[in-house]
Amino acid sequence: MFKLDIIKDVLVFSIVYVPPFLVFSKFWRDKKKSNLLLVLIGIAYMITCIFTENFIPFIFVLLNIRYLRHRDGPYEFDIRRFKFFKALAAVVVFYLITIGISITETIILSNFRVELKQQDIVTHMANMSLNKFLIMIPVVIIFAPILEEFVFRWLLFKKIFTKRMGVYLAAILSSLIFAVIHFSLNAFPIILWIGIYNCYLINKKGYWYAVFNHCAFNSVTVAALLLQKLNMM
């Protein structure tokens, strides 16, 4: 069990936390800044990620977005292009299909009498104290969506896979990686669906639409856990 946890941590670190720094380092070298300073920043980045989890990668994603807006123009990450009601309509469509997937999964598991445990982060948050839970709220509904949409949708889907295998295969592959890295058989179909739908959103509407949908999904889970905690109190 301990070895499995280490493998999970290494995979999350490598696939989710490292890419924002690699993008940052590319921009740093493009500006011809000090390589020694970049190494020192990298060491500090890796160490602080161990203790702060996704907070430092989230900060580096914001730095990367700021540089990208300056280098490529504001179009791709322009928050002014974001339309709230359009994003809300996209969330409604997403949830209607999500409910269908959830019902289908429940029926299949019931017929085969299979019980799967909840996603680790959900179990962890359900068992933590209310004070710690409140601290985790921005981590789950703000930091994680911005970080994960940058890594899985903008970097893997758009910038790496789409150029090599086309939009459809890129969406499937990046979403499979996204689902696998959450390490939950129970949540796998829903997380895979989030990935595919957010690939559509970032490709057709923009990065912030994918982030908004991800935030909305995480917010519903957090709200349900919070209500459960308040009722228990």
Results as ranks from 00 to 15, higher is better:
Lys3Ile: 12
Leu4Glu: 15
Asp5Met: 09
Ile6Tyr: 09
Ile7Pro: 09
Ile7Gln: 14
Lys8Tyr: 11
Asp9Arg: 14
Phe13Ser: 07
Phe13Cys: 09
Ile15Pro: 12
Tyr17Thr: 05
Val18Ser: 06
Leu22Asp: 05
Ser25Met: 10
Lys26Cys: 14
Phe27Pro: 05
Phe27Met: 07
Trp28Val: 02
Lys31Val: 00
Lys31Leu: 03
Lys31Glu: 01
Lys33Cys: 02
Asn35Met: 06
Leu36Gly: 05
Val39Pro: 01
Val39Cys: 03
Val39Tyr: 02
Leu40Cys: 03
Leu40Tyr: 01
Ile41His: 01
Gly42Trp: 02
Ile43Ala: 07
Ile43Leu: 12
Ala44Val: 07
Ala44His: 04
Tyr45Val: 04
Thr48Asn: 12
Thr48Lys: 02
Phe51Lys: 08
Phe51Cys: 10
Phe51Pro: 13
Asn54Tyr: 02
Phe55Pro: 15
Pro57Ser: 07
Phe58Gln: 08
Asn64Asp: 00
Arg66Trp: 13
Arg66Tyr: 10
Arg71Met: 10
Pro74Lys: 11
Phe77His: 01
Phe82Thr: 11
Ala87Ser: 05
Leu88Met: 11
Val93Cys: 15
Phe94Thr: 06
Leu96Cys: 03
Ile97Thr: 13
Thr98Trp: 04
Ser102Lys: 15
Ser102Trp: 14
Ile103Met: 03
Thr104Gly: 14
Leu109His: 09
Leu109Thr: 12
Val114Trp: 04
Leu116Ala: 13
Leu116Arg: 14
Leu116Met: 14
Thr123Asp: 11
Thr123Ile: 10
Asn127Ala: 05
Met128His: 13
Leu130Cys: 13
Leu130Lys: 12
Lys132Tyr: 15
Ile135Gly: 13
Met136Ala: 15
Ile141Gln: 08
Phe143Lys: 04
Ala144Arg: 02
Leu147Phe: 01
Leu147Gly: 02
Glu148His: 09
Val151Thr: 01
Arg153Asn: 07
Lys158Thr: 06
Phe161His: 05
Thr162Ser: 09
Gly166Thr: 01
Val167Gly: 06
Tyr168Phe: 08
Ala170His: 07
Ala171Trp: 05
Leu173Tyr: 01
Leu173Cys: 01
Ile177Glu: 02
Ala179Ile: 03
His182Asn: 08
His182Gly: 10
Ser184Leu: 11
Ser184Gly: 09
Leu185Lys: 11
Leu185Ile: 11
Trp193Ala: 13
Ile196Ala: 05
Tyr197Cys: 08
Tyr197Trp: 04
Lys205Arg: 10
Lys205Thr: 07
Asn213Met: 04
Ala216Val: 05
Phe217Ala: 08
Phe217Thr: 08
Ser219Trp: 07
Ser219Met: 10
Ser219His: 06
Val220Thr: 06
Ala223Pro: 06
Ala223Asn: 12
Gln228Ser: 12
Asn231Gln: 04
